[in-house]
């Protein structure tokens, strides 16, 4: 077990280096100079040179990368933004809770939709509910989050005024300069983003849960359970669901890890200052340290959640033993 975790963590280091190196190389290839943006209007060549030196991008790319690693590993410091000289740690620290609220709330919402619909439509294949849910799945899978987001914020936010159109409120009491805050305002502002997120994923999950439950219902051990005289409710609860939902755990863990890297579309539509939106803005500003900081954070999120999934899986599925 311990050896397994160590091996996984070593792999994580390799993966981490690969991802961050690629990000650096891509930035190096982009034919644009962040120094020009920093040096102000109509800069003289010396001013640009000074700006380059100041930002640390006058060195070769591998030196830049090693400095980045050194800062990160020794001081847990992601550096300062090119655009506004803010600490990237602070920026990521501000954006991550926003994305986390979106992702975890959204995950709860989509599981609350997907579990009952998926299970019921598998238990009653070809019924009205099944057909209706398959239609929902088709719409959910085909719709783009931007489109869903616009529709939702137009109708719920603008036309009917049930929810805010966009924006974010802190979970904790109003921060200085913010005009709202507290759990109620937070949840109120998150309703539409959660719904948007949920529609997208719920569709995929309904389809997967339905297929898994249908498959499990045909397993021999389910017939055995019925032959033992187990009531149908118990057969489904104890024998079907336990097996059918195993793969869902894997997928949920990986999707949450992935989404924590930034739900770009949903965040953009609702002006949520999360990681995805911050990353897009930073990219436009050629703000390498911020982009790299978000990459680091999302890589970590994916690695951690995959590890959690593996450990959880070994715990709930006796056939898997980590060695």
């Amino acid at each position: 077990m311990i050896r397994y975790i160590i091996r996984r963590l070593l792999w994580a280091v390799v993966l981490f280096i690969a991802v961050t190196v690629v990000t650096y190389i891509i930035f190096f290839i982009i034919p644009a100079d962040p120094a020009r943006a920093v040096a102000g209007k109509n800069p003289t060549p010396e001013m640009i040179l000074r700006a380059r030196h100041y930002l640390g991008i006058d060195k070769p790319v591998y030196i830049q990368y090693l400095r980045f690693l050194d800062r990160l590993v020794i001081h847990q410091d992601l550096g300062r933004s090119f655009a506004n000289r803010e600490s990237v740690n602070t920026e990521v620290g501000k954006a991550a809770p926003v994305t986390a609220s979106l992702v975890f709330g959204g995950a709860i919402a989509w599981m609350m939709i997907a579990l009952p619909i998926g299970i019921l439509s598998a238990l009653r294949p070809r019924s009205l509910l099944d057909r209706a849910s398959m239609t929902f799945v088709l719409i959910g899978v085909s719709a783009h989050p931007i489109w869903i987001g616009l529709i939702f914020s137009y109708f719920f936010g603008f036309k009917w005024g049930i929810t805010p159109i966009s924006g974010y409120c802190d979970f904790i009491n109003p921060a200085a300069g913010a005009d709202c805050g507290g759990p109620v305002q937070w949840a109120y502002h998150m309703i539409l983003p959660w719904m948007t997120f949920a529609v997208l994923f719920a569709a995929l999950y309904v389809r997967m849960i339905r297929a898994n439950v249908l498959e499990a219902l045909n397993e021999d051990y389910v017939r055995t359970a019925r032959a033992k005289g187990a009531p149908e409710g118990r057969v489904v609860r104890v024998h079907v669901l336990r097996n059918a939902l195993l793969p869902v755990v894997t997928m949920l863990g990986m999707d949450i890890g992935l989404a924590l890297g930034g739900a770009v579309f949903t965040e953009t539509i609702y002006s949520l200052p999360g990681l995805g939106r911050t990353a897009v803005q930073a990219l436009n500003a050629l703000d390498l340290p911020t982009v790299e900081g978000i990459v680091v954070f999302s890589t970590l999120a994916i690695i951690v959640f995959n590890l959690i999934v593996d450990l959880l899986y070994a715990w709930i599925d006796p056939r898997i033993r980590l060695a």
């Binding site: 021999d220 051990y221 055995t224 032959a227 097996n243 599925d317 006796p318 056939r319």
Partner: peptide
């Protein structure tokens, strides 16, 4: 009792 003992018991 059934034909295939490999699949007739619940694996979990």
């Amino acid at each position: 009792i059934f034909q295939d003992p490999m699949t007739s018991l619940n694996p979990v």
